[in-house]
Design a protein around this nucleic acid. Sequence first.
DNA 1: CTACGTAACAC
RNA 2: CUUGUGUUACGUAG
Length: 285
Amino acid sequence: MKADGTGRKIHSLIDKVYHRANLELAWKLVKQNGGSGGIDNVRIADFERVAAEELARLHQQLKQDVYRPIPVRRVNIPKRNKPTETRPLGIPAIRDRVCQQALKNRLEPIFELTFSDCSFGYRPGRSTHQAMRKIYREIMNGCEWVVDADLRDFFGNVQHERLIDMISERISDGRILRLIRQMLEAGYMENGVKFQTVSGTPQGGIVSPLFSNIYLTPFDRAMENKGYRLIRFADDWVVLCKSREEAVKVFADAKVALEALGLTLHPEKTRITHISADLNFSAIS
DNA sequence: CTACGTAACAC
RNA sequence: CUUGUGUUACGUAG
């Protein structure tokens, strides 16, 4: 183990994680089969025995470096605001979710230290409320022009090689890096047909939100280095500007920074506004 | 602070 | 077999 090996090995983190997943599954099972008679103790005991076996197998596979994630199950759900459009979820198997949780537990404390102060999405101790407060503070400082932007299919366009490069700046354990690569390249299953994944990190994966912040941190830094007042929540970000001219420049610079990551702006959800309309992360469009 | 549960919000 | 992360509020038990 190298510099990042100060923490526990990933397979030693599995136990706690699995306990949670175990209970969650047991509960689903009870709800499915129980119905009238309440909790069926026999079924839970039976389930927990199988779960314990699965856990032991997972430990063993990770220790011996023979663990392979299976393709995620893809299901398209309608978007909240627009019922016509759908969003592809990639749902990993329970066993793989357990593994991802253990991975996240290990990666998060390391990468939290590298994240920018302007990043508010999916981060412990940070909320939309805090992001809003920062926006209002900048408006009070005289920033009346708002660049309001969204990335086109961000989760689907994460480039595997770039992401792994970024992770390897802090993680030198080759086993962990191989594990991440396998998760990214596991592919997906839709209507019983297997597809390969050339890019993207599955929406529904436990590590995906963390990956999204790792992937966009170079963008955060690039914008900060230009002196822009960026506030980012996942793939949704705003820059507060003192003039319309500055706002126009933000677009050009953002485009360049995003291009390096293989990302483009969503044209319909990206615009410049003046603070006459109200502003928040939900009512952006 | 931990564990179980409910609800809401963001993406 | 509609997922995930994060935040917040509340209830119960330590």
